[in-house]
Nucleic acid binder design. Structure first.
Lengths: 130, 130
DNA sequence: TATCAGCCTTCCAGCAACTGGAAGGTCAAC
DNA sequence: GTTGACCTTCCAGTTGCTGGAAGGCTGATA
C-alpha cells in the first residue's frame, strides 16, 4: 500500500512516516514508480511506534522497544526496565505538577478582584519558589 | 552576582539563562566589564522559570506565568483569568499523566521480567485494536 | 610584572522530533 | 489530454535549548 493508506491505518502523518524511515526505524519496499510500498507488518510497526510515542517513550527508546519486539530472543526484563524508568519519571512529573498547582492556587486566591498592587502571596512565592 | 552564581542558585545552566535573556524573559543589569549582573529578584524569576519549564509549560506560557508572578499592578480580572486557565491546564496534565501512569504500571506489573519471550508490554504496544 | 586558570562575552552550529512548503513526477478519471 | 489527488525529494523552520570556538576580564601566584 502507498504511504497515504499506511498513514491512515497507523494514525501517523505521512511526513512522520517518512521521517521514521529517514532515521532508520522502518524500511518499506519501493514500487516501480518509486512510491513507498508498505506491507501489513510495516503498518503494524508504525502502530507500535505511534502507541509507544504516545506513551511518552522517546524515539530512541522506541527504537529499543522495536528491536526487542522484533528480536526472538528478547529479554522481557529489558523491556520492563525501560518501562519502569519511564514510570518513575512520570511519578516525578505528577509530584512536581501537584506542587505547582498548589502554588498557582495560592496566586488565584490572592487576586481578590480589585486593583490593589500589593499581593503578599507573590512575596511569599519569591521566597519559596524552588 | 555573575551568571555563574545565578546559575548555581537557580538550577539553570548559564547557557539557558542567556537564552532566556535573548528571548526577553529576563533583563539583568550589566557591570562596567560587560558581565551580566543578577539581582536576587532575577534569581527568583529564574527559579520560577526552571520549575514551570520542568513541568511542561511552554516558554510562551512561562512568559505569561512570569507576568502574573511579577506584575503586581495588573488588572485583577486578567491575572485571575490567566491563573485559572493555567490551573485547569495543570489539572488536565495531571489527569493525563495519571492515566498514562496507570497504563504503564499495569504493563510493568503484568510483565514477569524474566527471559521468557512473552512480554505483555510488547504485546500491548503491538495490539492492533485501539 | 607576567602568567595562568577560571570565569565571562558573542556568535555560530546542532540536537530532538517533527512540520511546512516548493518543485516536480505519477496515476486514475473524465 | 488535462485536471487533481496522490507521490517523490530537498530544504527550511519550529521549540528550547546545548556545545564549542574565539576572545576578553579577574584574581592568585611566581
Amino acid at each position: 500500500m502507498n504511504i497515504g493508506e499506511a498513514s491512515e491505518r497507523s494514525g501517523l502523518p505521512s511526513k512522520t512516516i517518512r521521517y521514521y524511515e529517514d532515521i532508520g526505524l522502518i524500511r518499506p519496499g519501493r514500487g516501480g514508480n518509486g512510491y513507498r510500498d508498505y506491507a501489513a507488518s510495516d503498518v503494524h510497526k508504525l502502530r507500535f511506534l505511534q502507541r509507544s510515542r504516545g506513551l511518552g517513550f522517546s524515539v530512541e527508546e522506541c527504537r529499543q522497544l522495536l528491536a526487542l519486539y522484533e528480536d526472538k530472543s528478547r529479554a522481557s526484563a529489558d523491556v520492563k526496565g525501560i518501562a519502569e524508568a519511564k514510570l518513575s519519571e512520570i511519578d516525578r512529573k505528577i509530584r512536581e505538577l501537584t506542587e505547582l498547582r498548589h502554588t498557582l492556587e495560592h496566586l488565584v486566591h490572592a487576586c481578590h478582584g480589585n486593583d490593589r498592587p500589593d499581593c503578599p502571596i507573590l512575596e511569599e512565592l519569591s521566597d519559596t519558589a524552588t
